[in-house]
Nucleic acid binder design. Structure first.
Length: 405
RNA sequence: GGGUCGGUGGCAGAGUGGUCAAAUGCACCUGACUGUAAAUCAGGCGGCGAAAGCCUACGGGAGUUCAAAUCUCUCCCGGCCCA
């Protein structure tokens, strides 16, 4: 039997660090954790995209904290819901994924989550797939399940209210999403579910079902979203989302492009840096004489370190300092063989340094294409023997070494 | 089923016969500056082309017209109201 650590300080931290809300309340959850009982908790991830992102990592990080105390963590792959695709927006009816796609993604998901969560060792996180039970549901089961909720409860949800107001469609099966998610809770008979605050509604549906089906309390812990003081989120639509399958260099750079105001919260949510240390960082940032960049670099380093290890983080940081801060060429540049006489224009497209020849032209015209740090100004310029060994640079961070043949 | 309004670029959203490759915002790209791939500012942002220009594109199809995102018909999809 796995031993559970009862350390009040640690427990207090876990139920407050990065936490937005706890249902039914923090005190009751604390009592449960202090009782020495080993609880079972989970968070679900729909493998609809090919990579987890930093927002998912926040929940995974929280799971890992419970794992460290010895609790049973389930890393749930939402392959059932993932195959259907989330119809949040009518314009974005997703292409349905095959079982193979989903399983392929899922494989990576576990790997991606591995930076935070331990899938091996004494208390490994358990991977489960929700198709295991959801595939078997009959129409009759579905009716039974849905009878536990009212339409009014469903449309209370923010997102539905918004759409009602905007007169945008709400598909009937969207009401079923919270149901399936809640059903997961009941089937796995969990004590706690964690997730982003935007998942609150779905998670609470699970509370209801856990009560109905197993006559048991399920705690729900919602996490703060990664946003700055003004509520500006970091995410896909903001263009600064970090995906866990990105290269360490890209990951580092993306974090550096986050708004300064998000630094402290990001430390809290995405890293395992101690509360005391974060406190110091917050104070450092309060002093206007200090440069927030320094702490943002530390943050970027930490994020890469957790996900890819110390070495990768160091390399990513070196790369950043070298190419971005000092505007130098990185150490290892991809060499590409080119035939003499080929126009640079075509080369850019072939090497995917530009999306199309139109894009390549624009980049050249705007001075974004440099050969050994000299801007190219002739659209028709061809590669000549003298270009052998020269460094071609597009924008701030796309380099190729030319090898003439 | 009836009535009515609508479907526009990656997203949001203008445009209602020519001046529309389609305003504006977000996202994205390039440059300047910087503390950085933040912020700010400038430029750009369908494809091909050195350019002139050509091609493709405003839900699908068919028409009207010298000319259609804009008008007509039809099909598909959605919102609202009524039943």
């Amino acid at each position: 039997m796995q031993k559970v650590i009862i350390d009040e300080k640690k427990i207090d931290e876990i139920i407050s660090r990065g936490v937005e809300q706890v249902f039914p309340d923090k005190e009751t959850l604390k009592k449960k954790l202090m009782s020495g009982e080993r609880i079972r908790l989970y968070c679900g991830f729909d493998p609809s995209a090919n990579s987890l992102h930093i927002g998912n990592a926040i929940a995974i990080n929280k799971l890992s904290q419970f794992q460290e105390l010895g609790h049973e963590v389930i890393f749930l792959i939402g392959d059932f819901t993932g195959m259907i695709g989330d119809p949040t927006d009518k314009a974005a009816t997703r292409a349905k994924l095959t079982r193979e796609d989903v399983l392929e993604n899922a494989k990576d998901y576990q790997k991606q989550a591995g930076g935070y969560l331990n899938f091996e060792g004494e208390n490994p996180a358990i991977v489960r797939y929700n198709s295991e039970w959801n595939d078997k549901l009959t129409f009759r089961d579905l009716i039974e399940l849905s009878s536990n909720f009212t339409v009014q409860q469903m449309i209370q949800r923010d997102m539905f209210q918004q759409r009602l107001k905007e007169e945008k469609p709400i598909h009937l099966h969207e009401f079923l999403y919270p149901l399936t998610q809640g059903y997961d809770s009941a089937v796995m008979d969990v004590d706690l579910e964690v997730g982003g605050n935007d998942q609150m509604f779905n998670m609470l549906a699970g509370r209801t079902l856990q009560k109905v089906i197993n006559n048991k309390e399920k705690f729900v812990l919602t996490l703060k979203l990664l946003a700055d003081d003004n509520g500006k989120k970091m995410g896909k639509s903001e263009g600064n989302a970090v995906f866990l399958n990105q290269s360490p260099e890209d990951m580092y750079g993306k974090v550096m492009s986050w708004d300064d105001g998000v630094i402290v919260r990001a430390f809290e949510l995405c890293t395992k840096v101690s509360i005391e240390e974060i406190q110091k960082i917050a104070e450092f940032l309060k002093d206007e004489k200090n440069n927030p960049r320094d702490k943002k670099m530390q943050l970027a380093f930490e994020v890469v370190r957790i996900n890819r290890g110390e070495e990768a983080a160091q390399k990513a940081q070196d790369y950043f300092i070298r190419t971005i801060q000092n505007k130098e060429a990185p150490e290892d540049i991809k060499s590409v063989q080119v035939a003499i006489g080929k126009r640079f224009l075509e080369f850019l497209v072939e090497e995917k340094m530009a999306e199309s020849s139109g894009d390549a032209k624009r980049k050249i015209k705007q001075g974004g294409v440099r050969l050994d740090d000299v801007a190219l100004d002739d659209l028709q310029k061809e590669i000549s023997p003298e270009d052998d060994g020269k460094i071609l640079k597009v924008g701030k961070r796309d380099f190729r070494k030319i090898v003439v043949n």
